[in-house]
Structures are given as C-alpha cells and as structure tokens.
Design a protein around this nucleic acid. Structure first.
Length: 658
DNA sequence: CTAGGGTTAG
C-alpha cells in the first residue's frame, strides 16, 4: 500500500531550489523561484559592499574580521550567512557559531530551510548535538534536506535509535525519503548496538527502498549490504548483493568485509577470487585488500597472504597505512612475526595504528615484555596511545602473565594519557587477574566499575573460572551472561566445562538441557590446514572424510608412541560421564588432531604446519600438539577462535593459558 | 548532505 508515499522515480529536484529564499516570505513561493530574477538582488544593492567584504574575508579565513563587520551590518544575504557558518566550522569555534546563529535569527533568516541545513551540519561538526536538535525543532519548513542533515548528524554522533524514531515521524508527515535519507537511516540501524528489533527496522526500511524504486541506486544498496553485515545477517547481505544490478568496487568490498567480519574467511577469499575473475572493470583497491588480508590472517593462510602481498606491490598499494597494518597482522598471525617487523621498519610514516599492530603482533606471540617496550617507545616518539593501544598492550601482559606491569599500565592510562577505560579495558584487566588466579580481585574490579560491565567482562571472568575451576564465581558470571547474551552457546559450554572439571555431572546435564531448551547446540569442531596453497577442512570424528581411516590409524600409532614418552590424554574435556577408553577415542577424533596428522603426512621436514579452528582449542589438543612439536620436531601454528598458539619444541606461545 | 577498510578480546 502506498500509505504515505507516492511511487516515484528517484529523480530529485536540484538542491538549490530554496537557495535564494527571501527571509520573511513563506516558503511556498520560493519553490518556483528563479534564482536569476529575484527581488533579493535589488534589495541587497545598498549593502552589497558589506556582503561582498564579509564573504571574501570568510573565504580568506579571516573569521574574526568578518565577525567585526557583522555587528554593524543588519542586512546580510543568504550566501554571506552560509560562508560565515562554514567559516565557523573550519575554525571549530562554537562561540562564534552561536553569535552568527543569533544574528541570523534576529534578521529573520531562521526559517530559511537552506540555512537551517547549514546550521545543523555546522553544529554537528562542532559536536553540539543539542544545538542540532534545537535548530531542527525551530525550523517549520522541514524540507528533505533539513531532515537529511538531522539524520546525518545524529547518526554520526551515535544516536541511531533517535534517528529511527524521527524517521517514523518523517514518514507520517508524508515527505518522501530520497537516496540520502536511506543511506543515513540504514547506517543508523547498523550503528546501534545489535538487537533484533533493529534488524526488523532494517528490513522494514529495505521494504521502503524496494517500493520506491531505490534498489537501482548503488550507494543505497551497498549501505544495505553493509547494514545486514553489521547486524550479522550474512545471508541477507549476500542476497541483496547478488541481486544488485550494478556493482562497483565498493559493493564488492562491502560484501567481502561482511564475510571477513562474520567469521567466514573462506567465503571472503572465494568472493575475492570471483571478483578478480568475473569483473573486468572493477579492480580491487586498498580497502578491498585490507578485508582479504584479514581473511588470510584468520585462516593463517600464509601462502595466500604472500600472493596478496605480491599483488599489492604490483598495484602500488604498498604505501597505504591501513594496507601495511593489515599485512603486518596477517604475517604475525601466520607466525611470521619478523616479516611484520620488517614491514614496520621500512615504513617512513607510521601512525598509531601501525604501532598498535606491532604491539599486538608481539602480544599474540606471547612476548609481553617486548610489547610493553614497543608501547613505551611509541610514547617516547611522541605518538599518543589510543584506547586500542591499551587493549593491545594489556592483552600482551595477560598472555605473558605480567600482572604488575598490566596494573601499572591500567592506572597510567587515565592519569597520564587521558584515555578513559572502557568495557574492553576492564575485560582485559579481569582477564589479566583472572588468568593469574587472582579471581577475587578480578571480581572486585567488576564491582568497582563505573560503567555497566558488558558480556566481554563477564565472559573474561567466566573464562578465568574455567581455567582455575572456580564453581561459585563461574555460576555468578554465567548467570549474568545468560541474561546478556542468551543465544551464545559458548557461555553454556564454558559453565559445563567448569562443572565437568568438578565432577558435578548432574549440573553438566542441567546446563546441556538449558542449551537444548533454547534451541542451541554446541557448534561442531572444524579445523583447516593450508597445504600447497590449498585449504583442507576437517570435522571432528569425520567418518565421511576420505582420509579419515588413514589419519585415524596414524593418530592411534602416534598416540601410543607418545604415551610411552609421557603424554597423558586429557579426557576431562569430554562433557559426558563415559569410561576412560571411550573418552580417549573421542578426543583423538578432534578435528584439530586430524588436521595435525594431515599436516605431518603432507608437509616436508622444515615446513611449519598452520591450522585454523572455529572453536577454542581444547586442553587435550593443546597438550597433544605441544608434545608433537617436540616429538616430531615440528613447528605448529594454531589459530583459535580467540587466540593464537605457536608450538615450538614442546612449548606454546600462549603460556598454557587457553 | 550518500556507500566499503586498518589495530582489540572471553
């Protein structure tokens, strides 16, 4: 039904329709106003000089002098006000903006929708959202430009929900949206913190877009892909993407980024390949490369990553900072820390993200002291640490068990660097203390938090409780977590792990029932390995895999040999109360061990094995792999869902903190 | 006044 909208083609009136609006006349007469034949000019003749002088002072950046003329000049025209407002924006001066605004009000220009748009954009730029709302509220003639300016400002300031409410209001007034409106409201849907109601709003807007024929607009459709991507609806995103008639490099990049962001790195690489093969006029650019590199990093696909590096060099994209950061991280996560360091050393310009990338590179490899050292060097070079610098360095402390250093850095962040701790930082601290078995202190940190502890924080605590088998605290943390993210299966599994460790089998059963009752299930374990530039995939106890028999026999033999040398299967990871032999059989069928076996058979002597997993590495696979790295003298790299393990000579870079 | 990207983590 066309309740409030008329079906219309997206052809739009030129922006300047209301540009030369005389201040006090009602807007209706302005719509057909011909800019070249208006009374405005003759009216302005007598002060034409002052307008001209103020305008040129604005253009030259002399805002203060322009403002001095302003006080003695009541007859300014629209263009002069526009230039004054732009100049205030450029000078970041809210007080000057206020005085130009009130001058404009005094002279009856405050109902000019063109200037209202400019005022809104200016206040948004100056960070004063209250003034944005005020201008909007006082503007009676709300053209689509005025609405769009409001939506844009509120969206950029993170007031997504408010935009969606206002969008409803606009629809009720009967003003049709244009292509800009759609991009802003879609962004507002995506920018708000994920909730299912937002997804419904997004779908509703999607419907409006189709009904009004805007599905031919590349910008609108790309934003739609991105919205679904950010809300985690990969399927919707890909349907929209596939049905787009015209795609450009931005649309392709948005879809590739969607896969990379939603833990589907395979699909990201596959789509990239498709883009390379099937499009003739859309070459990937630096933005595309960044997402593809992330996918390689997630898969620890070093060979693919090296090919991309070559391509980046050939295309001359190798001096773009985001590309280099992404390359550094890719190399680090593929176990080639020194290659990332070399890239860093060769950069002639570095920004804070380059530094952060290096810090976290050392962090994931378990080199905590080195990470701190780089962090300090960054500060000494005059680069201010960002919130993420602290997450990176605190994460590194936590991996390396550097409790005191971590505390010291946490205290310095607000005091010395004016960085306010966010939930992520608290999560790092909880992790740091929790891993070091200072669980009470970790719980205390949460109690003392001034902001609402999110799922990350409670998740850190639960994770630590699992390591140190603290049933009581684990129950407290999971209670909160089940409320905050009821559909995250991982939390239930963690709690069940704690109970199993404590031999509380009835409780294990109870948690499993909770999972089932909510229609959730443990995600089946899956591992990938790159051999000769090809990825091979394994599922736990995968009888359908053609090589399963061979691999399983190989593992059985290996296992018994290792047992003689002291390997003890960690069967407690099996969450069923079965007998020991059966448990051993189950853990030996874990996908990661199949991948390790495949790697041992199919790689040459000095070659590193690189494996990726969709879940956390289980304790048995971890100790098994540690053992093998010594026993078979193999370097093995495993990329977890949330961590990175570099096994060498019987030890792991994670320091046994899974 | 429109669209895509870097560093983080249980």
């Amino acid at each position: 039904m066309w309740a409030f909208h008329c079906p219309q083609t997206p052809q739009l009136p030129p922006h300047s329709s209301s540009r030369l609006l005389p201040p006090s006349k009602p807007p209706i007469c302005c719509l057909s106003l011909n800019p070249s034949s208006t009374s405005t000019i003759s009216k302005n003749n007598n002060n034409h000089m002052n307008n001209g002088r103020i305008q040129s002072l604005c253009k030259q950046g002399h805002l203060k002098q322009a403002l001095q003329l302003l006080s003695a000049e009541p007859n300014l025209n629209q263009l002069t006000y526009e230039l004054l407002l732009l100049s205030c924006t450029r000078h970041h001066s809210l007080s000057d903006a206020r005085s130009v605004h009130s001058h404009l009000v005094d002279n009856g220009f405050d109902q000019d929708p063109f200037l209202a748009t400019k005022l809104i954009n200016m206040y948004a730029e100056l960070g004063s959202i209250d003034h944005v709302r005020q201008v909007f509220d006082k503007t009676r003639n709300r053209t689509i430009y005025v609405w769009n300016a409001l939506f844009r400002s509120l969206t950029l300031a993170g007031h997504g929900e408010e935009v969606l409410d206002l969008y409803r209001r606009m629809n009720r007034t009967g003003i049709p949206s244009d292509r800009f409106t759609y991009t802003y409201v879609l962004k507002a849907c995506a920018a708000s913190n994920c909730s299912s109601s937002l997804l419904n709003r997004g779908k509703e807007i999607h419907g409006h877009i189709l009904r009004h024929g805007y599905d031919v607009n590349v910008h609108v459709m790309t934003t739609l892909v991105d919205m679904y991507a950010r809300l985690g609806c990969v399927t919707y995103a890909s349907v929209v993407f596939r049905e787009m008639g015209v795609k450009n490099v931005v649309s392709w990049s948005a879809m590739i980024a969607c896969y990379a962001r939603n833990e589907m790195p395979f699909e990201a690489l596959e789509l990239f390949r498709e883009m390379m093969i099937e499009t003739h006029d859309t070459d990937p650019n630096s933005v595309t490369m960044v997402s593809v590199l992330q996918a390689c990093a997630a898969l620890a696909a070093l060979e693919q990553g090296k090919l991309l590096h070559g391509y980046i060099l050939r295309r001359g994209l190798n001096s773009i900072l985001p590309v280099i950061s992404a390359l550094m991280i890719m190399y680090a996560k593929c176990g080639k820390l020194e290659l990332g360091q070399r890239l860093f050393d060769q950069m002639d310009k570095k920004d804070v993200v380059s530094w952060n990338s290096l810090i976290s590179s050392y962090g994931v490899h378990g080199f905590g002291e080195k990470a701190i050292q780089i962090f300090e060097e960054m500060i000494n070079r005059g680069v201010s640490p960002s919130p993420i610098s602290f997450i990176s360095v605190l994460g590194a402390c936590s991996h390396a068990g550097l409790v005191e250093e971590g505390k010291r850095l946490f205290e310095s962040m607000r005091r010395d660097h004016k960085v306010l701790p966010g939930v992520e930082h608290y999560a790092c601290m909880v992790d740091l203390l929790g891993r070091a078995n200072m669980l009470e202190e970790a719980a205390k940190i949460i109690e003392d938090m001034r902001i609402e502890p999110g799922p990350r924080v409670w998740g850190s605590l639960l994770g630590s409780c699992r390591i140190h088998c603290n049933v009581e605290l684990a129950e407290r943390a999971s209670k909160r977590l089940f409320k905050l993210e009821p559909t995250n299966a991982g939390n239930y599994v963690l709690l069940a792990d704690v109970y199993a460790e404590a031999n509380m089998w009835d409780e294990v059963k109870r948690v499993r029932k909770m999972l089932e009752a909510r229609g959730l299930q443990k995600i089946p374990g899956r591992s990938w390995i790159e051999v000769k530039r090809k990825m091979h995939s394994f599922v736990s106890v995968d009888e359908f895999n053609q090589q399963f028999e061979e691999l399983h026999a190989f593992l059985l033999k290996l296992c018994s040999e290792m047992k003689e040398k002291g390997y003890v299967p960690q069967t407690k990871v099996v969450l069923y109360d079965l007998d020991e032999k059966e448990k051993e059989r189950i853990v030996l069928g874990h996908s990661e061990k199949l991948a390790v076996a495949f790697g041992l058979i199919n790689t040459s002597k000095g070659e590193t094995i690189r494996i990726t997993k969709n879940l956390r590495l289980c304790e048995d696979c971890h100790s098994f792999t540690k053992f093998i790295s010594k026993f078979a003298n193999k370097e093995i790299l495993v990329r977890d869902v949330n961590r990175f393990h570099h096994f060498r000579d019987g030890v792991c870079s994670c320091g046994d903190y899974l």
